[in-house]
Design a protein around this nucleic acid. Structure first.
Length: 285
DNA sequence: CACTTGACCTGTCCGC
DNA sequence: TGCGGACAGGTCAAGT
């Protein structure tokens, strides 16, 4: 599910809600997905938030960080308490939580709660010492952050070289090439750059690589602006859906007219993943 | 070594 | 209405 824009949307939302609060309780309902000792979290203050690719990081006051990966169906939903004038906050604003897929529940000093839901149990939460983040096996492998200066056209081209024999769609889904692009934004970026998803990396011209570099950044930024993509599971920290798919050019639009040329959008499988494209705008030579 | 497939899980949707 | 199969935003291990 969540790709970079969805995780970034959650990061921004959570930051505004739980920064500065103290963790008073952690309930791990599905031990398989929780790595580390949840007791270490009790009593710690939530300090700041970061994101690397599709991973959300939360720094705590005792030099520990929580790393969260939502994989396909993960959600992080914060539920506050209704403020009663002159009294204590008691009632949940959103009483739907927890749900069947709730795997971990964090409780904070103001009695608000953060629910980690994940229907498919692919996602995970890890407790890591801050000093060990730089050698974390998952973070270490990630390529450049696409919305920072480190993601240059030249860095992109160099990383693509290692995948010259694969399709460009598979290559940009590889998190070592660029961090945070997933199936939705890969399809969208290829459309904007007018590149067929099955095009071999080695056949791309410098101009195409440059165009794709630009269109990946553009798609991700639009994704953030629209609050992410909600096909089935994704909601932000407040439990609200995102609207990127309403402006998407190709993703999940099989047989619908191309917004550029009216030709029907096609769906094919590339590298085992469903891929949407316009056969007219994205012709293979 | 490089690319493809299956596995990890659960739920939904579609065709019969 | 029920049942089986395909499929879903990601990543890793095993297989070719």
């Amino acid at each position: 599910m969540p790709e970079l824009p969805e995780v970034e949307t959650i990061r921004l939302g959570l930051e505004s809600k739980i920064k500065g609060l103290k963790i008073t309780d952690v309930q791990v309902l599905e031990p398989k997905i929780f790595y580390g000792d949840c007791i270490q979290l009790i009593g710690q203050t939530v300090e700041n938030f970061w994101r690397r690719g599709k991973v959300l990081g939360i720094n705590l006051s005792n030099n520990l960080s929580l790393m969260v990966h939502l994989k396909m169906s993960g959600q992080l939903i914060w539920v506050g308490k209704e403020k009663v004038l002159g009294g204590h906050p008691t009632k949940d604003i959103n009483s739907k939580m927890p749900v069947k897929s709730t795997r971990v529940i964090f409780t904070f000093s103001d009695r608000s709660k953060l629910y980690f839901n994940d229907q498919r149990k692919f996602g995970w939460i890890k407790v890591v010492e801050n000093s060990k983040l730089k050698v974390d096996i998952f973070l270490q492998k990630l390529g450049p952050e696409p919305l920072t200066d480190e993601f240059t056209i030249e860095a992109f081209r160099q990383n693509l070289l290692k995948h010259s024999k694969s399709s460009i769609k598979s290559a940009i889904l590889d998190q070592t090439v660029v961090a945070g692009v997933g199936n939705i934004y890969a399809s969208e970026a290829l459309f904007l750059a007018k590149i067929h998803p099955e095009e071999m990396v080695k056949n791309l011209t410098d101009q195409e690589i440059s165009n794709l570099h630009h269109s990946m950044i553009q798609s991700l930024q639009t994704g953030i602006k629209k609050g992410g993509s909600s096909k089935t599971h994704y909601v932000n920290a407040a439990g609200e859906r995102g609207y990127f798919l309403e402006v998407a050019y190709v993703y999940d639009r099989e047989n619908q007219p191309c917004k550029n040329c009216q030709a029907p959008i096609l769906k094919i499988i590339v590298g085992g993943r469903g891929s949407y494209f316009c056969p007219n705008c994205q012709s293979k030579d």
